[in-house]
Structure formats: C-alpha cells, structure tokens
Design a protein around this nucleic acid. Structure first.
Lengths: 339, 339
DNA sequence: CTGAAAGCGCTAACAT
DNA sequence: ATGTTAGCGCTTTCAG
C-alpha cells in the first residue's frame, strides 16, 4: 500500500465523481456542493492522496515556492529570519527554499537561475554583490516578484532596509549621554550596505556629539578575530571607556579579549552590541544592545511578498526602513563611575 | 523581453531541429551529432532558455531535489553541513531544500508530507522525535531514499551515526592522562541519541578510568544558560580541575562564568569542548576539542544519497559510525601544574 | 453544480 | 541521428 502513487484520478473514482470535481474539492474552489466536497476529501484521506506538486505547478503556472538567497545561514540573524519566514509562508501553503552562496558571485547568479527554472513565485534576496551588472541583469528579468533585503540595488521590487545609520547614532548618543568620550567601534569592514552605513553612521554621530574619533577596529569579515587588536589598543596605553561591537562572532572575540585583559564589564569598560543574540542576552552581565524587532522584521518581509504573489499591483515600496531599538541591559554605566 | 517564457519548442525552432533533438542536446543525452548539439546549445543561450523544472519533474518522475530535515539551522553543525551538502549536490545538478522544524513533531511530519508532494529524490533527516509511530509510519512509506543522520530509528535506510560515546571516552581518557580526577561534564540533557550516548559514554569512561563521578551539569537544551550552575559549583567549595563542555552556546556561557569567577584557562582550570566551532578555534586560549571531520562527514552523507538516487540497490548501510578526533589546543594542562 | 476535454513543457518511446 | 508523438498529473476552460 505504500509505494503506489495515488493520483487525483484514483480519488475521483473512489469518490464517484469526475476528475474535475475532485480537483475543485481538493483545492476548495467555489462551485462544489458541500456533500460532494466531503465525499472527495474522505476519499483522498482514505487513499492517503498527496497531490503532485510538479503537475500542479506545470498546469497552474504557480509553484507555490518562495526562495531566499542569503550569503550565509550561519549568521544568526538570517537563520532566525529563515525560520520565521518559512513558518509564516507555510501557513499560506507556500514552501520556502533556501540558497546560501557564501557570498560568491557565481553562486549568487547560479542560484537565481535555478530559482527561474524552478518557477518560484517570489524571492527574497540579500546578495553580497550589490552592483554586479550580470547579477542585476538577471534580477531585472526575473519572472517573479523580487524582495530586496537590506541592500542598495538598482532593480525594481519592494525592499526592507535596516537603519544601520540610525542604530549607530542612537548607540553613540546613548553612550555620550552616559558621559563617554572615548568610544571605540568594532565594526566589520563591509563593502555592502550594512558595513558602509554603520561606519558612516558612527562617524556622523561622533561629529554631531562633538566627540573626536578615538580609533577604530575594522575586522575584515564577520568571523574575523579581534582579540589581538583589542589587546593592542589597551597595551598601547590608549584606553576607551566604551566599545560598540557588531556581530556575534566579533562580540565573542571582544569579550574574550576584555576578560583576558582583566577588564570587568561594566565597571572597567562599557560594552554595547549591535544586533541581539543568545550571546548578548546570555552573557553575564547581559549586554546592552541595538536590536531589530524580529517579529516586525519578519512581518515586513513576509507580508509584502505574499501581497505581490497575489498580484496586487501597487507601486514598489522602495523606502521601508526598519529601525533598531535600544535594549538597555547591564553592560553600560556612566563614564568614570566604575570600580 | 523579460516575461516571455521561452520553451524548448522555441529553442528547437531557432536551431532548426525537432523538439526531441533539442531535448536530447540540452540534457546531453547520447545520440546527437556534435554539430547539432552545438546548434541547439547556441540557440538556447541566444534565447536565454531556462528549462521548466516542473515539466521535467512531471515527465521524468525525478524532481532533482534533495531535502534536509533538521530541527534547527542555528546550530552551527547543521548550518555548515547544509552549506556543504548543498554545494556537493549542486555539482551533480541537484537542488537542496531545507526544512527546519524547531523540533516540533507536527512540523516534522508536515515537512515530510511536503517532501512527498514535491517528489523529492531523496531526503536526509535528523528529527527530534525518534520513536513517534506517526513519524515512523510516514518514513516507512516514504517514496524515495531516506538517509538518517545520527538518530536511532527503526526504519530502513542508510545512516550515519556520530560516535558520541567514543568522543566522551577519548575526552575523559585524555584528561585522566593529564592527571585530572575531578572532571565536571556540562552536557545538555538529550532525549534523543546524541544526548543519551554522551551521558552514557561519560559515565562509562569515568568508570573505566576508575574515577568517581564528581558531579554533572545538565542544561535542558542547547541554548540553556549554565552561568549560574557553574558559579554555584565553585561557590559550593567543590572544585573540578577540568570541564568537558558540549555545544557552542553552552560553551559560551561556561567560558563567561569562568572568566567572571576569575578562573584562568588553563592555569586554574582545564576546559575541553565537544564539537568544533569558530568559538573553540577563536578563543584565547584556543579550546582543545573533540571534533568531527567536516569534509569526511559531508562525504559520508552526500555520496550514499547520490548512490541511492542512481538506484544502485545495495543493502542499507545501517552501521556507519563517524568518529570524533582530538584536536589538542591550549586549554588543557596537567592537573595541578597551573599558576 | 458537475463532467468532459484540452493542454501546461517536457522526456522517452517509437518511427524513420 | 533525428523527427514524431504520447502522456506525466493536474487545473481550467467549456458544455451541459
């Protein structure tokens, strides 16, 4: 009884109706009598019928598939996001596909081609290469709605942009209000939107606050170790009173360095994180953080995508900005007030 | 020029051949003259032809899709694994789908149903629920090869089992050889295979080494905080000379607690990790670890799956055991030799 | 409200 | 070596 692929034909026969009626009942389309519908559904259940997605997609020209293109799902932000999006879209009967590219251009382009072949109904992308003409070309001709996540790309489509600049400003203002002047940023060097805006935002905020830029630590990537750089700064005699640290991995390395230097948080130094995670929450003391509202972020991605798939032709929402908010925890205190 | 769905028909016409020949050329099947083949491929490229995967799947009864069912892709092990498997299978022309379930039974079952509907050619699963009859039932009737990853499940299919027991034994032996007697394990309490075997392995190894079990810390989940438990142990006056810690999140919390207690690694206490990660590598000092060989693990999953898809009917490989190996780093020293 | 039939794009079997 | 054709399982007209 297992391997026999039962088709809608079998269901129709079992229910004693035509194949068309069976289809309508199964998709609960209008124009089916209640009793007939029940008959069909009962038959389907009895036969353990599973619709064939390929046949459906071929005929209906809708795969009920939504694709995500991320560089990397080891990044907790994207992992959580993927999880939540998958959940949300599953409620609406869509299956979510994930393609990770390690940020490599060829794989980004190849993934998009695969998305075309598979006939995805929509895609959400946060590619590493914002300005590559080849990638942009594929995107412009993409046969389904494209949602752009936190990237500056010259292609049509809804998008959601994280307010990195605002986050940096809020962080600096918060620390400045606590009396900190020597604030050291530890922000990975980004070629793409997030990195650029964070640096720009930091510089601007410091200027606004009338604070000299004390120094900078710019790890190459999200996974770079900053242990040595941190130790060097303090060995050099210079002595920031507060750190702004972005990224889980970098934060981990930073905390390790501080502990190793014998510096206590927040007594000896204040630490502020950009981006919430198990680490910021679970650390003792917990780390004050600029965080994205996860639920809201998910909603602002999932819903517009669904709307587009339904085909409601509105103008692209090209300016949606997702703010960070300050989560005050125990890792920052007034400058000079420590033990 | 964008939306026009160009079909194999168009390619055939453009190349001046029949639709069948076009198909053969595109799939580079045997029985096509070199020149003809080039003609077709040129036409395909010129028209920017993308084959329709749904039609292919429907006709050929092969979706060229491989599914992964994991509880959670925020777990670095699975994230890395997914990445690598996707890469490997892409080389063979397969697309990989990921379903994450947060370990919830209903979602595990639902995911499998979706896998059936989508006609996946094979699946790799590491479900949370090893003994649920409903899940087992679906699996037994699954219409494609099933590969089981590190779970004890009474269903047919190849599998790869991680040697958690061996890992714990090696860890204990290593520490015992360094003269440690008071070894404290910090291992999450698992209801499924990995957790059970780790605990069993630890107990057995301690017995073999003639060491009394000093105590245990058993966080509920992989994300549990153990800061307080660690602090309590040391405040209680008891004083292990070495820790065996499993999981990235738990390790993070543990290291935080040790730092906060003012304990230096390895001088005041030796620390050994189960499972390699950016954290074990990047920590200062780097953490001695029992690790799985990533490449080998990937190979031992990816290859058998491919073989099964090709239909080579051999017996299930039901006993493959993937060993951990010891990566000696700086976090463990001889008992009593510290500052 | 339901049945009959066309056909989505492709591959595979059968002709030539 | 290439052309022709049937039909995968389903949704969607079009009749009735």
């Amino acid at each position: 009884m297992p391997k026999s692929k039962v088709t809608i034909r079998d269901v129709a026969r079992e229910a004693g109706v035509s194949i068309g009626t069976a289809s309508r009942a199964i998709n609960d389309a209008p124009g089916v009598q209640g009793r007939t519908r029940d008959l069909v559904l009962a038959a389907a259940r009895a036969l353990d019928y599973q619709p064939n997605a390929a046949a459906r997609a071929l005929r209906s020209r809708s795969s009920r598939l939504i694709g995500c293109l991320f560089a990397d799902v080891e990044n907790p932000l994207f992992a959580r996001l993927y999880n939540a999006l998958q959940d949300r879209w599953a409620e609406e009967g869509f299956v979510t596909m994930l393609s990770t590219t390690s940020g490599r251009l060829d794989r980004e382009i190849r993934s998009l081609e695969i998305f075309v072949e598979r006939g995805l109904d929509a895609i959400v992308i946060a590619p590493n290469h914002e300005r590559d003409p080849g990638l942009l070309h594929v995107l412009k001709n993409f046969p389904a709605p494209v949602f752009i996540l936190d990237r500056d790309m010259a292609v049509p489509g809804d998008r959601l942009l994280f307010d990195h600049q605002g986050a940096m400003r809020a962080a600096v203002q918060y620390l400045a209000a606590l009396g900190h002047r020597d604030i050291l940023p530890v922000l990975s060097h980004g070629d793409s939107r997030p990195g650029q805006l964070r640096h720009a935002g930091f510089d601007m905020a410091m200027r606004e606050a009338g604070l000299p830029v004390f120094g900078k630590i710019e790890p190459e990537t999200q996974n770079s170790l900053v242990f040595n750089e941190i130790v060097e700064v303090f060995s050099g005699g210079a002595r920031p009173s507060a750190l702004i640290v972005q990224g889980t991995q970098i934060l981990s390395s930073t905390l390790n360095a501080l502990a190793s230097l014998g510096l206590r948080i927040p007594d000896d130094i204040s630490v502020m994180a950009i981006g919430d995670s198990d680490m910021t929450r679970g650390h003792v003391p917990p780390i004050t953080t600029m965080a994205l509202d996860h639920l809201e972020t998910v909603r602002r991605i999932a819903d517009p995508v669904l709307t587009r798939i339904k085909g409601l032709d509105q103008d692209d929402d090209t300016g949606a900005l997702q703010a960070y908010s300050l989560i005050e925890r125990a890792s920052c205190i007034k400058a000079g007030s420590g033990g």
